[in-house]
Computed example of a mutant assay.
Amino acid sequence: MKLATARIDDAGTVATVLVDHADATSVTGRIVERCDLGTLLAKTPGDLTAKVDTGLRRDGEELTMDPADLLPLIPRPGKALCVGLNYREHIVEMGHPVPDHPTLFAKFATALTGPFAEVTVPENLAEKADYEGELVVVIGRRLPGAVGGASEDEARDAIAGYAVGNDFSQRDWQYRTQQWLQGKNLDASSGLGPWLTTDVDPVAEDAVLRTWVNGELRQEHSTADLVFKPVDLVRYISEFTTLEPGDVIITGTPEGVGAGSDRFLADGDEVTVEIDGLGSVKTTVRIG
C-alpha cells in the first residue's frame, strides 16, 4: 500500500491518496481522506489499513495528478528527528568515530518540501550546499516516552511504513558550532516522499539507497548496513520522548555526500534519491 499527501484541485485542497500507479508524468490514485497523511494517522479508531478502507468506502474518488502535486508526505510532523553518522563508511569519510548511541538532531516542519520540488538556496547559504539521501521512518502508533522505552515488538508495531528523504544541508553553517541545527533547517529544502510504503521492510529486504546528481551516481549503499536500524532508533527515542502518529525519523545517509569529496551543489543541479521498493524524490537547486 502506497499513501501520499497531495494537492487535489486548483483551490489547494489537500488529501491523503492511495496511489495506484505512478510514472514520470502522472500519478493516479483514489482519495482516502481530505486531510494530509499525518492527520489521517492521528485519527482513531483502528489501524492504518482500517482507516484507509473506511476512507475509500466513504469517498474513493479517482484522480490523476501531476507528480508536482505531491506534497511533503507528512507536511507538519510534531517531531522530525534526524540521525547523523549512521553508516560506517559515511562516518569514516566525515572523520568521526563510530558512535555508541544515535546522534540525533531536529528538523523543523518548515524545512520539509515536496518530493519533486525546486529548492531555493539564498546566496549566503549556498557555498557548501549538500545532499544526503536517507531512509525515512513514519510513526503510526503512539509510544509513551520516558517509561523505560518500547519493546522490540512495540517499536516494530509503531512503524506505519517507510519513505525517502533528502536531508539537505549547508555544511559551512552546520559546522559553525558543535550543534548542527543551523545547517539542517533551510526553509522548504528537504524533500520527503514520494509516498508512505507500508508493505516493504527495506532493511530486512536489503534495499539499496542510491543518489544521483545530474545523472551521476554519488551514493549507493544497502539500508541493511545502518548502524542503528529503524526499530533500534524507535526504541531509543521512546526512552526519552513520546512518539506520536505522524512523527518521522530520518535515519542517516551513506558515504558519497558532497562534503566527502568537496563537490557541493550549484544552481540548476538535480538531485535524485531512490530506495528500492520505496520510490524516489527529486530536488532541483536554485541559488539566489
Rank of each mutant, 00 (worst) to 15 (best):
Q182V: 08
Q182M: 12
G183K: 09
G183A: 12
G183L: 13
K184G: 09
N185R: 09
N185I: 13
L186C: 05
D187I: 05
D187M: 04
A188W: 13
A188G: 11
S189H: 04
S189T: 07
S190Y: 03
S190D: 04
G191Y: 03
L192Q: 09
L192S: 08
G193L: 13
W195F: 14
L196D: 03
D199Q: 03
V200M: 05
D201F: 01
V203M: 10
V203W: 09
A204Y: 07
A204W: 07
V208Y: 03
L209F: 08
L209Y: 11
R210Q: 12
T211G: 00
V213Y: 03
V213I: 14
N214P: 07
N214Q: 02
L217Y: 05
R218H: 09
R218Y: 02
T223V: 12
D225I: 10
V227L: 13
V227C: 05
F228T: 04
K229T: 14
V231G: 09
L233Q: 02
L233E: 12
V234C: 07
V234Q: 02
R235E: 06
S238H: 05
F240R: 06
F240Q: 05
T242M: 02
T242C: 04
G246F: 08
D247K: 03
V248Y: 06
I249P: 05
I250C: 05
T251Q: 10
G252S: 05
P254C: 07
E255Y: 10
G256N: 11
G256D: 05
V257L: 15
G258Q: 07
A259L: 02
A259M: 14
D262V: 06
R263N: 14
F264I: 09
L265V: 11
L265Y: 02
L265N: 03
A266N: 15
D267H: 15
D267Q: 08
G268K: 11
D269G: 08
E270R: 12
V271I: 13
V271P: 01
I275D: 04
D276S: 01
